[in-house]
Nucleic acid binder design. Structure first.
Length: 348
DNA sequence: AACCAACTCAACCGCCCGAGG
DNA sequence: GCCTCGGGCGGTTGAGTTGGT
């Protein structure tokens, strides 16, 4: 494998390494280390450039390199990290002991990327591809059992992504609905590209109908005809005959254990921008500490959606003084999504 | 067995960034 | 501020391998 030996203009050898060259490099580094890659080839008696030596060492000869197939756990880790970090292969590799960035990059390009595409997910955003979303269930159904087993990890990831995307979009919309009116953007903004990008996860008419129903509810909230949502109700609020009963509203629990914290960039900075700015990776945000390794709570907490018994209330204010609960855990939503997530610390 | 297309992955390339002068 | 250098990173290449016909 590799390329046939060749030499560049300066006479330095290129192409695949011979066992003799490997031996020279390993021997030298074991004895002297690699303080200067530029000087190393000459000192080690190698007719190679320093860059080539460094690459050979870091990607192949390093003693702690782990060889062999990626495990399910490693695959899942890569998927999770990639959903947050993107093509930051070295950063991803730092979470996988013994694996090199090059190896992970190759694994991604040759396996995981294709699998995600096959599953109908955009490999860059990890979100459902809207163009083929409608055919996804059909594609999955067509897959034979062996493929399902082979793709188990990716499929689990994909299904979770879809579920999270739907869940988060519902949450965001309800958050929007339940905000004080002064924070509401014009209706046309709600249907702008940012929100559509989020709601693109919706895959069926049921969800579409749900959103329509929620829009009606919003209007009632804005007009003041209803002030509180009773989730246990089996009938629609007065005047909302077209909407579905609240008991049919989807579970509003936000997943507490975010194995895939990709939803960070789906959070809506409503407190600072009523036009629903969607966070993008690397973008400065008042929610994200700029350089501190210890994230501090935002000065202006995002609006919080709280769930008490069967009713939902919204509140704005200081996160430290607000005690909302999701899934029985007494903590704020943004804490769940950001501060409790170890990856967030790294990204921040 | 022979051919061919798809796949794999080691290695290279070009760009970027930080340090030092 | 500018330049050079070394190191690191992500993208790409292409010979070898594998699998299908």
């Amino acid at each position: 494998m590799g390329r046939s030996p060749c030499y560049d203009e300066s006479g330095l050898k290129k192409g695949p390494w011979t066992p003799e060259e490997d031996q020279k490099l390993v021997k030298y580094i074991q004895k002297h280390g690699h303080s200067s890659w530029r000087a190393l080839p000459k000192l080690a008696g190698l007719n190679r450039c320093g860059k080539s030596c460094r690459l050979r060492w870091t990607n192949y000869l390093r003693p702690d390199i782990k060889r062999g197939k990626f495990s399910q756990e490693e695959e899942q880790t890569i998927l999770n990290l990639h959903s947050v970090l993107g093509n930051k292969w070295s950063a991803i590799a730092s979470h996988l002991p013994g694996r090199t960035d090059n190896e992970i990059k190759n694994f991604w390009n040759t396996h995981l990327k294709k699998k995600l595409i096959q599953m109908g997910f955009d490999p860059m955003t990890h979100r459902p591809r809207t163009d083929i979303l409608s055919t996804l269930p059909h594609l999955i159904a067509q897959a034979n059992l062996k493929e399902l087993i082979d793709h188990r990890s990716v499929e689990e990831h994909a299904m979770r992504l879809q579920a999270e995307a739907v869940q988060m979009a519902k949450f965001q919309y309800l958050q929007y609905l339940l905000q004080p009116q002064s924070h509401h953007p014009p209706a046309s903004v709600v249907t702008g590209s940012n929100y559509i990008a989020t709601t693109s996860a919706f895959s069926n008419m049921e969800t579409f109908n749900l959103l329509n129903s929620l829009a009606s509810i919003k209007d009632s909230l804005v007009s003041g005809s209803i002030t509180q949502l009773d989730l246990s109700s089996t009938t629609s609020p007065p005047g909302l005959s077209d909407s579905i009963p609240f008991s049919h509203l989807p579970d509003l629990q936000i997943p507490c254990s975010y194995q895939t914290p990709l939803n960070k960039d789906m959070l809506i900075d409503q407190a600072n921008n009523p036009e629903f700015t969607v966070f993008s990776q690397g973008e400065n945000s008042p929610w994200l500490p700029s350089s501190s390794s210890t994230p501090s709570p935002p000065s202006v907490a995002p609006p919080l959606l709280t769930q008490t018994n069967s009713s939902i209330n919204t509140t704005m204010g200081d996160a430290s003084s607000t005690n909302s609960s999701f899934g029985g855990e007494a903590t704020t939503v943004w804490q769940h999504l950001l501060l409790d997530d170890p990856l967030f610390h790294e990204i921040a």
